[in-house]
Nucleic acid binder design. Structure first.
Lengths: 157, 157
DNA sequence: TTGATAAATAGGAATGATTACTAAAAAGGA
DNA sequence: TCCTTTTTAGTAATCATTCCTATTTATCAA
């Protein structure tokens, strides 16, 4: 989870990517974050160090890194793209209140087999489970609005 | 899966929604589709019957139906929202080539339990598994570009 | 070290899905 | 039938993302 600048340079080179200060900074910001930031989040984070940085460059960089397989996009809606540099198999828990995304690395989720009822020429290459619900604070604020439902319920789809 | 106009009217009323011809047509188009259409798809489909229909109305209607819980949004990227009126527990298979979305109703996927490592005050209300890969035709076109990888591989995240 | 070449950067403009605003029309209830 | 509220349709606005392009930079070979 922690990379030196040299590691990152190596990683970029290994993918045939040039290693530039901006690119390194953007990637490092993403690697060190567990918040699944947006392009704009990363822009804001790197801007103090590179005041000439363009948001455009952030988008371009994320595109390049995604193509190279160093970064993945996480979808929680159709608002803004959020990014993740965690390449180990994992899944996501999304709070429907505050849009927080948590990583979940539960080995039992990594053993799902191809679902039944698929066309047999369909080749599955990956899968991801998205759990949705409400984090503690958001449950509080929901409860103060409507006085209902705090008991444990079975998970449904 | 097949609803009469009366059924739909009942359903709308039950949710406190007015039943209008446009709304009914939009919902019906969605219910009868398995293609997870976009707002624009639905607009195009209903337009011949209601030439004065506004795309705006389609968005508004989908928003209302989603709030009422009659419709869900499916995310496959950050391009356009796609919609689904299938309320029974199911999951999705997404072709990375042509963006087709297939419904998967495999009972074994409906028995996942809450993942380990969650904050204990987080309440999961739903989850969905998204399988990604390539459908038959898209595998063909991939293969004609790069001559590689057609054997069966284990699924990874 | 230098020069050549291809990629990366920054800036502004463009795109395109979605939302906001608003007046007119329609639905549902009294 | 009348009233109230929602819905509709049209136009304009928003906002994330992409496109275009000139300049700069990284990398590689000589």
């Amino acid at each position: 989870m922690n990379f030196s600048l040299d590691d990152i340079q190596q990683k970029f080179r290994g993918c045939g990517l040039k290693s530039t200060p901006q690119r390194t900074a953007i990637y490092q910001a993403l690697v060190h974050s567990t918040a699944h930031p947006t392009a704009e989040d990363l822009f804001a984070q790197v801007l103090p160090t590179y005041p000439m940085l363009s948001l455009n460059t952030v988008y371009y960089t994320l595109g390049v890194l995604r193509t190279a397989g160093l970064v993945q996009e996480v979808n929680i809606g159709h608002d803004r793209a959020r990014f993740d540099a965690n390449l180990s198999p994992h899944h996501h828990v999304i709070c429907l209140g505050c849009q927080t995304i948590l990583d979940v690395m539960d080995p039992k989720l990594n053993r799902l087999t191809s679902p039944s009822g698929l066309p047999k020429d369909f080749e599955i290459t990956q899968y991801q489970v998205a759990f949705r619900g409400y984090c503690g604070p958001c449950r509080q604020s929901k409860a103060s609005n409507t006085a209902s439902s705090s008991g444990k319920r079975p998970i449904s789809q």
